[in-house]
Structures are given as C-alpha cells and as structure tokens.
Amino acid sequence: MKFAIVSKGDEKSNTLSEKLKSYLTDFKLEYDEIEPEITISVGGDGTLLSAFQRYRHRLNDTAFVGIHTGHLGFYADWMPDEIEKLVIAIAKTKCRIVEYPLLEVIIYYNNERKEEHYLALNEATIKSVEGTFVIDVEIKDELFERFRGDGLCVSTPSGSTAYNKALGGAIIHPSLESIQIAEMASINNRVFRTIGSPLILPAHHKCIFRPVTHKDFLIGIDHLTFVQKDIQSLQFRVADQKIRFARYKPFPFWSRVRASFIDE
C-alpha cells in the first residue's frame, strides 16, 4: 500500500509525521506523495483541508485519515498517543470507507476567460471587495431573492459544523447529500428584505449567484481566500465526487459533534 503524510508544519506534527513514516515503512508500506492510496493528515482540520485540496484530483483513489496534534479536530479520528495502534491498523487490517458529500463551485466571467471549477470540503464564501455586497440568488433557475449584506456562505453537510455554524446555520448529517446557504449580516428593513434564514438545498437543486453592482469579489474555498475579478456568476451544487475517509475504528458523526462542541 502507498501512503503520504501531510503535516501541519509545527515541531510536534513534524516529529510525529517522521515517526509515522518510519513505522509504516518498517511494515513494508511505500511512501508515495504522488499516488498515495491513503493520505494521513497530522495537525488539525486546516491540515486535512490542505491534504484534501492537494489530492482532490485523486478522490476516487485516495482515502484520508486524520491525527490531531492540537485542539480537537473534527475530521481527525486519532490522538498522538494512538500512533502505534493506527500503524498496526493500517498495516494489518482492512479499513471501512466512509464517503462525505462535497461542494462544486463554478465561477463564470464576463470576459473571454474560461470558467474555473473548484471543490470544497467545508464551504465556499463570497464577499464584496469594497462597498455593499449585492447579489441575486437563483435557485433552480428562478430568482429567489436579492441579497444585501456582508456576504454569503455555501457549505457541505460536514462543513455545516464550521463557519456555517458560526453564522447560525443548521448542523446536517453528511449522509444527506445537500448544500446549505447561510447569510452574513444581511440588511433587512422596510426597503430591503432577505429570507433571513439558512437554506438547505437537495442534491438535484443548483444555486446561482449573479452580481448586481460590483463584479470583483473575495472568494473563499475552504482555507483558501483570493480575489476574483469581473465575475458574471457563480454556480453551486452538490459535487459528483465525494471525499473518502478510511475508518479503522468507529467514530459516528454525532459523536464527533458532541466531542467538538459539548464535551469538556
């Protein structure tokens, strides 16, 4: 079996990564950063997001495992003191594959620039570079509302526990193939009105954002943020691809939620 390791980059994570690499190669597993069958993330959720973006072109061939070396990571099953158990599990047992839905984002431009495609594990966000954020929201090719505010967040079910939750969105189990739209500080008064509530769309619905005033926006795709200019529209839908996690021990979704937000 081929494996790769993505480290957070701090001393603790790097030391653990080197130990993990040594143990796994002792079991005759092959370290391969190009075509890994298993990618091990050592750090926090941000590290796993980095690993996902690095290997998003291999989602059908690569499964992910997380070890958290700082605060409890939502995507991480393993603690640093369990590294020997993880190594034996990877080397000696067959894992259970769990798949989570992803978000597909397509950005179209007004000029002749070709559209760009992205995948998000957690969420995509859109904010105005300057001035009030004004955008038309279409659902199933029909105008739903004209939004005014700070921005919008479109999240996956697993990403519903991240920025979406901070915005007051619902937590959605990843067995439900859906996306969620949450508002950032919407403007609601006698003149302007938005729904003022998160929207959950099923897999067969797509959502399109069409700029009304400005054409330049600050776009976030998981942990990556960049400015995109002269945008014509943005399309969001449940992606055809899914992320695959290698489970070597049970850690149900609601147990993850409780461990991340309730347990002391």
Rank of each mutant, 00 (worst) to 15 (best):
I5Q: 04
R146C: 11
R148L: 13
V227M: 10
I219M: 12
I38G: 00
G168T: 03
P252C: 04
G70W: 04
L176C: 10
E112V: 08
G131L: 07
F144V: 00
A170W: 05
E104T: 06
A185I: 10
D263I: 11
Q53W: 11
I262D: 02
I208D: 08
D61P: 00
S255M: 13
V257C: 04
E130P: 00
Q180L: 07
A51Q: 08
R146E: 15
K229E: 14
A4I: 05
E84F: 08
E123N: 13
R247C: 07
V6L: 05
S7P: 02
F217P: 05
K2Q: 12
M1K: 14
G46R: 02
H68E: 01
Q180W: 09
V105N: 05
N188W: 09
S233W: 05
L176Q: 07
Y118S: 02
L102H: 04
Y100E: 14
S197P: 00
R256V: 08
I171W: 06
G44T: 02
I107V: 15
S175T: 14
E130Y: 10
V134M: 11
F236M: 03
A4C: 10
P198S: 06
E99Q: 14
A166F: 10
M79T: 03
N188A: 09
I171T: 12
N164R: 04
K92E: 15
V257S: 00
D141L: 07
P80T: 10
Q235I: 12
L176Y: 10
A246D: 01
T132I: 15
A76W: 00
K127I: 10
I208H: 09
D240T: 14
S128F: 09
F192I: 15
A51P: 06
L224N: 12
V137S: 01
N122V: 08
I83Y: 03
M1T: 13
N122C: 07
K21H: 08
T213P: 01
V6Y: 01
H223T: 12
E30S: 11
P174Q: 09
S155Q: 05
K229Q: 13
F52D: 01
R247I: 05
I181V: 15
F147C: 03
S178H: 09
L103H: 02
L72V: 13
